[in-house]
Write a protein that binds this DNA or RNA. Structure first.
Lengths: 127, 127
DNA sequence: CTGTATCCCGTACGATACTG
DNA sequence: CAGTATCGTACGGGATACAG
């Protein structure tokens, strides 16, 4: 594994069922964003992108200022939503590893689109 | 139908300056998402996508359950961030129109990417 | 029609202490 | 190492009333 995601962009190339009303479309995007909603979720995701697998303590060190409580809480949320996978090794001392699911990896192109959007701020006429 | 953004995708095709660290990338996406953060902003955006210009009262009617206070508040935020443009006509009775700026229109591909991501939920192996 | 001004409340988050 | 438990607070957002 640890397939980086050079080709993740090609998922259902044919298209997906298109929202019919503005309200419906908004609701779907809102639901998608709800998965990402949380002070530390994006930090976690970017730490895990590219197939990187990390232990709890590694994440804790990689993300300055996050508390144990918050790190766990956000990881639990991501796990419950099927974005992050948690693997426990029955050892002493305990060892737990976190990685993205395939769906989690599929987030990459979407976040990149947001990055691009943010990047053109100011490069466009005031309109 | 309502393929709102057939050709909006071509912005700075060459690429944008790429974040170097996970933390930096996360911070940029967080900032982008902060612009969209607000209970009614996505609803408003989808009402305005495709170049549709709408009056305050039209938006109020188009978005059920939104209060005047919240509608104004969210519109003010979008305006301050350069996503929405507000045009006042000095008439009696007052008339105000809202539309997306070019940058606001440029959001379309990014939101569409999120839509696609949400759409593949379940179509991917549990990993 | 297009807004302002208050009051109120739930909740996400931080700080801190404790545990198998 | 990898969590759990508890308390305190800031803030987004709903309800309502008022105004140019």
């Amino acid at each position: 594994m640890t397939r980086t995601h050079e080709k993740v962009g090609d998922l259902p190339e044919g298209g997906y069922d298109v929202p019919t009303t503005p309200g419906e479309a908004a609701a779907r995007v809102e639901q998608a964003l709800k998965f990402l909603d949380g002070r530390w979720k994006l930090e976690i995701l970017f730490q895990l992108f590219g197939g990187r697998v990390q232990r709890f303590s590694e994440l804790e060190r990689a993300i300055p200022d996050v508390s144990q409580k918050m790190l766990i809480q956000q990881l639990r949320g991501l796990e419950r939503d099927g974005i992050v996978r948690r693997v426990v090794y029955p050892e002493v001392p305990p060892r737990v590893e976190y990685a993205l699911t395939e769906w989690g990896q599929a987030l990459c192109p979407a976040l990149d689109a947001l990055l691009r959007w943010a990047a053109v701020r100011g490069a466009l006429p005031v309109s």
